[in-house]
Computed example of a mutant assay.
Amino acid sequence: MEAKNKNLLASQDMATAHLTALVVDDNMMNRKIHQKLLKNAGIQNQGVGNGKEAVDIHCYGQIFDLILMDMDMPIMNGIQATKKLRSMGISSMIVGVSSRSMESEIQQFMEAGLDDYQVKPLTKTKLTSILDKINHNFT
């Protein structure tokens, strides 16, 4: 049983070993927590503080497999940034991560071009669910 669990973990590590992620959140504590979760999952990542920085980093040619996007941020919010990234042809998996729980707000965020939505705080279980979707898309 233990060997089977090790093999399962090893296969998940192999699947995430080459993934990259961008964490977009104006709250530094949330950003650091999400970056640590990603790092612990073996995913190279970096963080930015608002949607404009997320758009700018893509304009400079960086591409990520996963973008964790907060909804409420100064300068450019998550809805605006998601729409802009999609209009630029960015096909990365974009997951909205917000404390918003009203169905209409979540729907508006999803319609901007999200692939998924998770309520903050992001947990290991929620991240595993996101990674399963990414790995499914790669196979």
Rank of each mutant, 00 (worst) to 15 (best):
E2S: 12
N5E: 12
K6D: 08
K6G: 00
A10F: 09
Q12E: 14
Q12K: 04
A17L: 03
A17D: 12
H18K: 12
L19K: 06
L19I: 01
L19A: 03
L22S: 11
V23F: 10
V23L: 10
V23Q: 04
D25E: 13
D25A: 07
N27M: 14
N27E: 14
M28H: 11
M28A: 14
R31Q: 15
I33Q: 03
H34E: 15
Q35E: 15
K39D: 15
N40W: 04
A41Q: 13
A41H: 11
G42W: 04
Q46R: 11
G47L: 12
V48A: 00
G51W: 05
A54K: 06
V55F: 03
V55Q: 01
D56M: 12
I57P: 13
H58A: 15
Y60Q: 13
Y60C: 15
Q62I: 09
D65W: 03
L66S: 14
I67W: 06
D70S: 08
D70W: 04
M73V: 10
M76L: 08
G78V: 07
T82Y: 00
K83H: 04
K84I: 01
L85I: 01
R86W: 03
G89P: 09
M93L: 10
V95T: 14
V97W: 01
S98K: 07
S99I: 15
M102Q: 14
E103Q: 11
S104I: 08
I106A: 13
I106T: 08
I106F: 03
A112L: 05
G113R: 07
D115W: 10
Q118M: 11
S129F: 09
I134P: 12
F138E: 02
